[in-house]
Amino acid sequence: MLVKNNNSSIFSFKLKKFILHTSLFLALVAGIFTLVLFRAGFEVDEFYGRFTTPKQHSLILGTSRAAQGLNPEVINQELGRNDLFNYSFTNEHSPYGPVYLRSIQSKHDAIGHDGIFILTVDPWNIGSDKNNPDDESLFRENDLMLHGMWDVNSSPNLLYLLHYYEGSYYNILKKKQDPQLHLRPNGWLEVMVPMDSTSVEKRTKDRLKLYREETLKRYAFSSSRLSWLGKTVEYLKPFGKVYLVRLPVSDEMIDIELEQNKSFDVIIREFASTMNLPYLDLSSDNDSIAFTDGNHIARGSTPIVSRKVAEFIRNHP
């Protein structure tokens, strides 16, 4: 019996020693790793920074067109404000629907009645799976990042860094940034791609091919998404003024969008009128606008478009 007790205590001692050593080692690893994560800033990638600011009072919403095409700094300046934040992501991540609305509710600082909310619309972010566009279980964003991002206001945002960040953590340690994508502290994504005619032509050709051959075949207008746009508007309305904006695209892209849904503009006008919202359609207003790929406004043209939107807001207080 005595021997058994001795064995048992030796066993227990060794086990505790193992756990102590392992815990110390893992704590040291975790500690150093956490210090690295604390270095993460807006340069991490094209999304991270938007999840690290406090809750926001006024928002620009939409997909990558809005993320790149509307600079809050210009609009703020024009309107004499300082609270507009771009919370737009991509066509895959942030079309209107339950996932995006939940994320908006988490990001929005639900205080006061003087906010402004610019909701950009296009046939793609109110479109879904062609076979069954109103089936919410088929919404493309359901399994993507925004769905799992229940914390969108922390810095560092460990949830994002551990679950959704796809780069190497060494880049965070070195504060290495993608030379072409700069996410600004106001949420605007500045894209610095070469704008010589050959590069633009190639990107435009590839983008239009993608939309014509894939996106156009995948998506159809979704009444369900339109109703989620309505729910988004209803949520935001008590906190300020909501505006609908359709951003400019190239002529070729307009053709594709017309092919996708000829009556999209009519539907949105009716929607705006029913919801009593000012609607600014800039889709064909593309004469003086440069695009990186026919779909996204180039950074040089962002101030022009942002000013037009600001002017519209000023005229519809």
Binding site: F25, L28, V29, F33, Y169, Y170, L173
Partner: peptide
Amino acid sequence: YLGLALVILLFA
């Protein structure tokens, strides 16, 4: 071992 663990975390 610590260095190896950090390399795994940082460069994975």
